[in-house]
Lab assay of single mutants.
Amino acid sequence: TYVQALFDFDPQEDGELGFRRGDFIHVMDNSDPNWWKGACHGQTGMFPRNYVTPVN
């Protein structure tokens, strides 16, 4: 499953995934309602669910 970033996200903690608005992120785990795990630009980490939108 892929999502697209609605906003820039700069990691604040180790293990978070940084990205820029418009980036596509491969979702690896969406079991938590607020923080998902994904991959983008060769990196993996957690990111806030409300920063992304589903891609059809």
Rank of each mutant, 00 (worst) to 15 (best):
R20Y: 10
L17T: 01
D23G: 01
W36Y: 11
W36K: 02
Q4R: 09
C40D: 01
P11S: 10
V3S: 05
G42E: 08
P54T: 15
M28C: 09
R21A: 13
E13Q: 12
W36S: 03
D29A: 05
R49Q: 11
G45D: 02
K37R: 12
T53L: 12
A5Q: 03
K37Y: 15
P33E: 15
N56D: 15
I25K: 00
Y2A: 04
D10I: 10
I25G: 01
V52P: 01
Y51V: 10
M28Y: 07
D29R: 03
A5K: 00
T53P: 01
P33V: 13
W36D: 01
H26T: 14
T44P: 05
H41F: 08
D14A: 12
M28F: 09
S31V: 07
T1Y: 15
F19H: 01
L6I: 13
R20L: 10
F7E: 15
M46K: 14
G22I: 00
N30E: 12
A5Y: 01
D10N: 15
K37V: 09
F9S: 07
L17Q: 01
T53F: 09
G42P: 01
M28D: 08
P33Y: 13
Q12D: 10
M28K: 04
T1M: 14
F24I: 13
A39C: 11
C40F: 05
V55C: 15
G18M: 12
V27Y: 00
G45F: 03
V55S: 08
M46C: 08
F7I: 15
F24M: 13
F9G: 03
R21P: 02
W36G: 03
D10F: 08
M28H: 12
P11E: 06
G22N: 06
V3P: 03
M28E: 10
F7W: 09
S31Y: 06
D14K: 08
H26G: 10
N56T: 04
G45C: 02
N30M: 13
N30L: 07
N30Y: 12
Y2R: 07
T1P: 07
W35G: 02
E16L: 13
G15D: 06
T53E: 14
G18A: 12
V55G: 11
G22K: 04
G18N: 10
Y2D: 06
P33C: 12
P11T: 15
G22E: 04
